[in-house]
Structures are given as C-alpha cells and as structure tokens.
Design a binder for these strands. Structure first.
Lengths: 333, 333
DNA sequence: TCACAATGATGAAACGTTTCATATTGACAG
DNA sequence: CTGTCAATATGAAACGTTTCATCATTGTGA
C-alpha cells in the first residue's frame, strides 16, 4: 500500500495536521519542522492521495470535456489545446463523446457531473435535454449556446459573411453553399452571414444577382461529397462556379466530388471551407478557408472554468479568411 | 449541497448501511425496505458521491488514456473507441497527450497514476523514463511495447510486408519507402517487413532487383510531403514509380507533394499508406492502405484493463490491405 | 414452549485528507 | 514572578462511502 500522510507524520514525529500544513505551501510552519517533514516525504516517497483530498474539499481537479466526436479534427484540436492548458494548471481532462445524440449527451453530462469536476467545457448538441441539468459546476460552452452558461464561439455570421465576400470579390455570381444541419445554431448562423452578404450585394448590384443554391447536410466529409455531387451535376450554365461550405471536412469531401466529376479546383470551381483544420493546408489544392481562432477559444474557455471571476455572457471571436489555393476567378463562359 | 446517503437513510427511517446495501444490487435486503429506500432516493434525487465510494474502495472507475497526440486521426479514432467501450461499462476516460516527449510522458503518467485509475491504456513514447513507473495499475500498451505490460498491436512487419508485396505484384521495381522515426519500434518493424518482402523478391528474381529508397521522418502530413518531395525530385529513370509510407498521414502529404510536382497518382506514381484513417477513403485518389483493426485493438485493450483475467503478453493482430485507387501498374517508360 | 438457526438491519470503523478549535511554548513587559 | 501575546503544533471532527461484527426479529422443529 502507498504511504499515507499518517505514515509521514509518525516517521517525522509530528502530527498529521502539521504534515498537511507543510503540504499546503502557504501555511505557517517552523523551518526545522518543515525541513524534517519534507525529508521524510522524500524518504518514503509519499504522494498525497487525491481522493482523500477531493472528498474533504468536495471538489476535484478534473475538467470535463464533452464534444460531439473527438474524431472530428476540429474537436481533436480543441481537446489537445484544452488538455495542454489544463495539465499546465495541474488539472486533468475527462473526455466524453456525445455522437451528436441528445440522449447520450445527457447521459454523459450526468456521469461527468457525478465526478464533481472543477469545471465543464461543453460543445452542446441539444438544449432541451441538458437545460438546467448543470448547476453548481462552472461551465462554459463552446460553439453552441446553452442557456445559463457562458458561450465562447467564433462569430459564425461574420465567418459566413467573409466567405461570401471573398467569392463575390473574385467575380463569382453563381454561388453554392453547403450547410451543416439546420437544427444547429452554428450552422444557421454561418449560412445566415453568408446569405446576408449576398443580399447586400443584390441591393448594390440589382442587375447581376443570381440566387444562391443552398443544400443542407452534416459537417462531415461524406456529406460534403454527397451534397457536392448534387450541387455540381447541373448544366454548365447553372452550375455554381464557387461553393462555400460550413466546415473544412465538407470542403474536403467536396474537393473529392469535384475531382470525381472532372472539375478542376480552382480553375472550374472555387471552394472556401470553414475551421482551418490542419489538413486544410495539406489537401490539393490547399484550401482557402475561414479560420477559427482555436487557441483563443480554448484560452477563454479555460479561463471561464478555472479563472477567478466568471466569464461574460458571450464571447464572439473574429474569424479570419485564410487565402490559399482553392479559389480563383470564375471560368470565362 | 447534494443529498448524501445519510439523508436518504434518515428520510427512509433506516440505517446508512442498509441504504448502501440496496445500492449494491446484489445484497440481501427485504423487499419492502428496498422499495421504501428506492422511493426516497428517487424523491430527494440522491446520487452517490463517487469520491466517498472511491476513497473507501481505494479505486476509481476511471481509465487513463495516454497518447502521443490526440490530433493524429489514428489516436483520435482510438480514443473514440476506448471512450465508447469504457462508458458502456460505466467507466470514464482521462485523456493525456505526451507530444512524443518522454519527459512529458513521465509527468502525465505520474499524475494519472496519482488518480488511482482502474486501468491505463498507453501508447508509449519511450521506455527508459517510464520503465518501472507503473505497478499495481492494470496497464495495456498499444502499438509500442513497454516491458512488464501486455501489448496489443497490429503486426507491423506483416503490414510492411503486405505493402511491398502489393507493389511488387503490380510490377513496380523502383520503390520508395517513407518511414517513421527510427527511434520507434513501430516504425522499425513496418520498414523491416517492407524490406523483407523486397529481399525475398531479390532472391527469387536476381536480375530485376533495384534497391529501395528509404527515407525517414515523422508520422505526420508534413513529413510525408517533405520526404515525398525529396524522393520524387530525381530524373525519371531513377525516380520511384511507387512509394509506401508508414502512415496515412504521410501518404496524404505525399499525395500533395506528387500533385505539386505534376505527377499523377496512380498513373505516374503508386502510393500505399498505413492505418486506414477515415480520411484515407476521401482523398483523391482514394488511398490504398494497410488497415489496422482498430476496433479489435480497442476491444482487447479494454479487456486487458477491465477484464477478469490478465491478457497474454502480446497480441499481434493481422493488418489487411485495402485496395483503393492510389495504386496501379508502373508507367511504361 | 423453548432453543436455535436464518434472515435482515444496525452501528461503528475505516479509507486519507484538511481545518479549526485548542494546547503548548517562549519571549517579553510590567 | 506573573500575565500576555504571538507563534506554532496538536487532536479531533468531518467529508460520503462500504463493510463487518453485532444485534434484533423471525420462523422452525422438537
């Protein structure tokens, strides 16, 4: 069995309270006793039992991280950042996947809560089932809002707006949009920003406007590929010359679809993604995309969970357009 | 404050011991008391405090998962599977990244161990620092061995062998190999299997043999791209017509490099990857690769950690060649 | 009717901490 | 020499469980 604080006390000839006090650096202990205790701790290799401490203090140094799917590169990146910052502060990260299933999400959050985490970082799937479930645990929400908790997110409208703006500036008029699930706010907001820029354009250029073609699916590769096919199998005259997507994964799926159909990117088709996952700069052509400031998101989230004062209600961080090789002027007809 | 077992006992008019016994399903309690207790539990919304239980039992229902980098799609996939199986059994997963840094690995394992996990699933980076660190915690190692602990891994030699075999069968003779870091066994084994098949070929076909070109780097995209460039910037007569890699990430980087240099895959260059990450079937062309049976790996690992009897020393699972679109016969000169 | 076994409930101890009220010590002022 | 005060150490309680030795209450057979 591991040595306990009692063993240390006994061996050092002091009381357990005293040992506890030398462990808590900032308490007042005489120098010689502190030295002696530290020596015995070293000698018998004592490591405080975290369970005892947690029970006594009624809190742990664990941070719960709930994401829809760790396999999604964006969430993997998020998890990595969270884990890095958390472990630098002496916290550990408990990981849970919801698989976009509200029922599973509820379940996961409940068991996480049962472990009395110091805080919760949550990318919510649904509001209905989780609403009111969390109380007394510092929680910040990423990407999607949950009433009663701070939200840290990229400004999705702005992101969509930037994508549309870029495409219009290049001269595209027939523009497609591959959206995420309509049920999610993230998705709705990105699309909304995108469409808003087009509306603005219509107002200033009444003659040129062509209605965007919007299709809806999931955020994953496969959806991008399928919806891409759908969008692209049209006569040259109506087929979009540019498509914006709600995620890089969709964009990469779309890239594939375009390739399958013999369309060259960016010559025949311009594509702009969303997120800027690591892979975005490694596909062929490199993907022009809307970058989420993920380090900043993580920093804020952890501050909200661990920091001394609560976060403000909502942070909307500015996305930035990363120009790479997947966009060009539309082909001349 | 949350209700405790004491509150339940008091409200139900029984002792805490009794409540505890109804909580432990398999204990003997009279029917009426069980009903009454369960009713009050329901009524006041009691949820057992896991810390109290863990302290008493001196063990938790947490599984530690230590990977080099959760951002690597293979490990993300692994994490997802681990989390799924673990949570089905009522366990939670504590995630730690080592960033391929032995020092960080040691640190991470130590703090994880301090949390008294029920088990540890570990993809080790180094042996030296971690050796002997873990005792008394059920541990299984994935991918790379660690003395004293069970290992579950794909048969890397077999994998390398399969790749070489496939390429040879297609008629390739000038074959390149992009290896992972020489310091890792995984990498060494894959390369070894690959080279072994070539050696065999040389023995049976003495005239035809051309020495393979092997380069070494990391398992990531970037390395694949850089090493790919290095391998491909040669006169047509010596440039490999096929390259096998030690990871799909490398293969995808290589795909990019080839594209940048105007080489078409598979017409001008055949590529075979390793792992079969989700993305492998979504790049253009779809990647022919050596699949790791990741579900099986996870299943075994969890069995080793949670199961009733220890795992045997070492499991080497069979990889399988997944033929897709990145390989073809070599171009006729 | 009585002894005894079987069944089921109880109370207390224990897990390893932290903290708080109390005790001890020494120095110093009066 | 006594009383006070500061500084520091002690002991015990408390956190929420589980378990084990007891104890109480039945039912059974003679």
């Amino acid at each position: 069995m591991n040595p306990t604080i009692k063993d240390v006390a006994q061996r050092a000839g002091v009381s357990v309270g005293t040992v506890s006090r030398v462990l808590a650096k900032n308490k007042t202990v005489s120098e010689d006793i502190r030295a002696k205790v530290e020596a015995t701790i070293e000698a018998i290799g004592y490591r405080p039992n975290i369970l005892g401490r947690s029970l006594r203090l009624n809190k742990t140094d664990i941070i719960g991280l709930v994401v829809p799917d760790i396999t999604n590169p964006f969430f993997a990146e998020l998890a990595k950042h969270v884990e890095m910052l958390a472990s630098a502060e002496g916290y550990s990260v408990l990981l849970a996947n919801t698989h976009d299933d509200p029922e599973a999400e509820k379940q996961q959050i409940e068991t996480l809560l049962g472990r009395l985490p110091a805080g919760l970082i949550l990318v919510p799937v649904s509001n209905s089932l989780v609403d009111g479930l969390i109380s007394g645990t510092r929680t910040v929400t990423i990407d999607r809002p949950l009433s009663g908790h701070a939200l840290v997110a990229v400004d999705n409208r702005e992101g969509g707006y930037l994508a549309a703006d870029h495409l219009l500036a290049l001269g595209h008029r027939r523009i497609g949009y591959i959206s995420g699930p309509n049920s999610t706010d993230v998705s709705a907001e990105r699309r909304e920003g995108f469409l808003r820029r087009l509306d603005e354009f219509r107002e200033t250029n009444p003659g040129e406007y062509v209605a965007p073609q919007v299709v809806e699916g999931h955020f994953d590769y496969r959806s991008g590929e399928e919806l891409g096919k759908k969008l692209l199998t049209q006569a040259d005259a109506t087929r979009p010359t540019a498509i914006a997507t709600a995620s890089d994964q969709q964009a990469i799926g779309l890239l594939r679809a375009a390739g399958d159909m013999g369309l060259r990117v960016p010559t025949d088709l311009s594509i702009v993604g969303f997120d800027d996952i690591p892979l975005a700069s490694l596909v062929l052509p490199r993907l022009t995309t809307i970058r989420q400031p993920i380090a900043e998101i993580t920093r804020l989230a952890l501050e909200g969970v661990l920091g001394s004062h609560a976060l403000q209600e909502e942070y909307k961080l500015r996305p930035v357009l990363i120009e790479r090789g997947s966009c060009a002027a539309p082909p001349v007809p």
